Simulated scan of single mutants.
Amino acid sequence: MRVTVAGVELCSPVIAASGTFGYGVEFEEIVALNKIGAIVTKGLSREPMAGNAAPRMIETAAGMMNAIGLQNVGVRAFLDEKLPKLRKTGAVVIANVFGFAIEDYVAVIEALNEAEGIAMYEVNASCPNTSHGGMSFGVDPDALYWLSRRCRETADRAGRPVMVKLSPNVTDIRLMAKVAADAGVAALSLVNTFVALAIDVETRRPRIANVTGGLSGPAIKPIAVRMVHESAKEVSIPIVGMGGITKAEDAVEFMLAGATAVQVGTASFADPRAVENIANGLRKWCAGHQVGEVRSLTGGLRV
């Protein structure tokens, strides 16, 4: 079940996705954190953020929409209060970082560089770049390149790899994958949520206070699998796939499409043990299909 992503060895290819697993420590009483591939923390910013007004999360026909607004305790509180407890669990920790200007991302990584117990950084490229009118880094090739490069250069000082989380809200995911890879990052994760809108037909108002939100869950899986496949053909660095994974067979799909590992997100809201259960299910699937090493599934799509 072991795989390696950007030089980091994982005991399983199944990872808990950012924003769906808290800071990890909240789950330690019900999930064996050292038995899952890794934990991606909630997104960390320079300063604490309260997030958006409620309602900010709703169920959809095949998943959920959210506009949490990147609520988090801030990087300093994470280092002081969360990371010491997380280190004791033996979990592989991937710190998700974000900002509204490149300098924000760099400042968060610089702070994290000082701490022990972090294996990798995941850079959320779906944030609005306030220095350039609010357009998301992940939809502008030039902005994505410089964000990826500066984050990679900063992380290099601590000898830690950077994985960039790509936005699916683009015309050509292959271009964005190549841009990030050309900036020298060690891995990619995709996809983030799709921008969506839900309306209450009785009140004629948006069902989420922020008006739009990010759509996730089983509804997006076929699109996410396609984007992973396209990206894997474009770049040679490892890809971590995500989007609607609820069972072992979903993880297999992503790996056959070209993913080295996968992240489980929305499923954790329905079942807090989803990550562990999917990992166990993947082990059983491999045993039942005479797959001796799970890594052999990567890129195994027959076309």
Rank of each mutant, 00 (worst) to 15 (best):
V275Y: 04
L282P: 02
L282D: 00
V291D: 01
V262A: 09
A270D: 07
F269V: 08
E253A: 13
T298E: 15
V262P: 01
V262L: 02
K284R: 15
G258M: 06
L256T: 06
A259C: 11
F254I: 03
L282C: 08
G288I: 07
M255G: 06
G288F: 10
A267Y: 01
E253D: 15
L282S: 04
R295V: 06
L282N: 05
E253V: 02
R273C: 14
A279N: 02
V264T: 10
G265I: 05
T266Y: 03
A257V: 09
V294F: 09
G299P: 05
A267H: 10
G292I: 06
H289Y: 07
G292W: 12
Q263D: 12
N280A: 11
C286K: 01
G281N: 12
P272I: 12
Q263L: 11
V294P: 03
A270V: 06
D271Q: 08
T260V: 14
F254E: 04
M255A: 06
R273Q: 15
G281K: 05
G265E: 11
A287Q: 12
S268R: 07
F269K: 00
H289M: 11
A270G: 10
N277C: 04
N277M: 10
T266N: 12
H289E: 12
V264G: 04
G288C: 07
E276N: 02
L256P: 01
S296D: 15
V294M: 10
K284L: 13
T266A: 13
L297W: 03
F254V: 06
H289Q: 10
R283N: 07
V294S: 04
V291Q: 05
C286V: 08
N280E: 14
C286I: 07
I278L: 13
C286H: 02
G281A: 01
F254H: 09
N277G: 08
E293W: 12
E293V: 13
S296E: 15
T298K: 08
R273D: 05
G299Q: 07
L282Y: 08
F269L: 15
G299K: 01
W285I: 04
F269D: 02
L282I: 09
A261H: 04
E293G: 02
N277S: 13
T298Q: 15
N280W: 09
C286P: 02
T298C: 15
F269P: 00
D271V: 07
V264N: 04
G292R: 13
D271I: 08
N280S: 12
I278W: 03
M255C: 07
E276Q: 15
S296V: 08
S268T: 15
V264R: 02
Q263W: 11
N277T: 08
A259Q: 11
A261Q: 12
E293I: 05
E293S: 14
R273H: 06
G292M: 12
R295Q: 13
V275E: 02
D271T: 09
A267M: 12
V275S: 04
P272G: 03
A270Y: 15
T298H: 03
G258S: 13
V262I: 14
L297H: 02
S296F: 10
V294E: 00
R283Y: 13
A279F: 00
T266R: 03
F254D: 00
K284S: 14
A279P: 02
A267E: 05
A270Q: 11
R273N: 10
G265S: 10
R295F: 05
E276W: 13
P272W: 09
T260N: 01
F269M: 13
W285Q: 04
A287T: 00
H289W: 11
T260M: 07
